[in-house]
């Protein structure tokens, strides 16, 4: 066996065997994160409220329910036309909150991008956005519903908030990645801020902004379904809520679920295409 002339670089573990890990901070943090996950999960299961749970009956019943839903879907309480109309409402809520959100987010993200804005403005916008994001959408909708009355206005306003927060983050990151050279070149010609934005920043990020907006539309569709169900904002989500909670009609629940699934998958396929085209690397959160 060949011998090592200078074993100075070898690290040894406590038991004297040769170590393979560098013992870096990232390794330690990762290990602790995983341990923490496991502990919290165990504690979580202890914390659960198990009132009224009969696991075996629940599972068999659910299996039966799923069978009825997915194998015998039917419409009983409303017509096909009505169903399409309700889907239209849900899509409409998603469109409105996405489009309005994108327009507002565009301005806010120009203020939030560190290379286009003053630092303190950018900080303030970011803090506000972080706050908005932390409040669940459904709470926004419900809160607006008290103030503005329950209607599409409340739903759109509530959904708008999160869309703005999401898009500001995405847009401002896109703006910050704009090549410094482009901005400098434009500034050097004496262009004012608007010129820089209109001729330098927006053209080079436009496709990004569009794909992010579409991604948000995909999310907003399922948010709109949820708002219909949980906040009574109407649309197919509300019908789902009625079918399951009011009529106990599993076939109808099945039909509605299929409809939602179909649209969601179409949107996902479209947005994956966009993603592949415009984000060569992976998509950040």
């Amino acid at each position: 066996m060949e011998t090592i002339t200078k074993p100075t670089y070898m690290k040894r573990k406590k038991d004297g065997s040769i170590s393979l890990k560098s013992g870096s901070k990232s390794e330690r943090v990762m290990r602790w994160t995983i341990i923490l996950f496991i502990l919290l999960t165990i504690v979580g299961f202890l914390f659960f409220d198990y009132t009224g749970l009969h696991l075996t009956t629940a599972i068999t019943e659910t299996a039966y329910n799923l069978k009825v839903m997915f194998l015998e879907p039917a419409l009983n309480h409303f017509s096909w036309g009505e169903a399409l109309y309700q889907i239209g409402i849900t899509l409409g809520l998603a469109v409105l909150s996405t489009v309005l959100g994108a327009v507002i987010a565009l301005f806010l993200s120009l203020m939030a991008a560190t290379n286009l804005s003053k630092e303190w403005i950018s900080k303030i916008v970011r803090i506000i956005v972080a706050f908005i994001r932390a409040v669940p959408t459904v709470l926004w909708v419900l809160i607006f519903a008290i103030a503005a009355g329950l209607g599409s206005e409340a739903a759109v306003l509530g959904m708008l908030f999160h869309s703005i927060a999401y898009l500001v983050k995405a847009f401002s990151e896109a703006f910050e990645e704009v090549d410094k050279g482009i901005l400098e070149a434009l500034r050097a010609t004496g262009s004012n801020w608007w010129h820089v934005v209109m001729h330098g920043v927006l053209p080079s990020t436009f496709t990004y902004l569009l794909s992010w907006t579409f991604l948000r539309f995909e999310i907003n569709f399922s948010v709109a379904v949820a708002m219909g169900a949980a906040a009574g904002a109407g649309g197919i989500g509300f019908e789902l809520f009625m079918a399951s909670g009011f009529y106990f009609d599993l076939s109808e629940v099945g039909f509605i679920t299929y409809a939602i699934l179909l649209i969601a998958i179409i949107l996902e396929v479209l947005s994956t295409r966009l993603k592949k085209r415009y984000f060569p690397a992976s998509v950040r959160h």
Binding site: M1, I4, I18
Partner: peptide, 14 residues
Amino acid sequence: FTEQEKKRAFYLLQ
């Protein structure tokens, strides 16, 4: 991995 394998790895790196 055995200590011998590790030592050999170090030897090769050297």
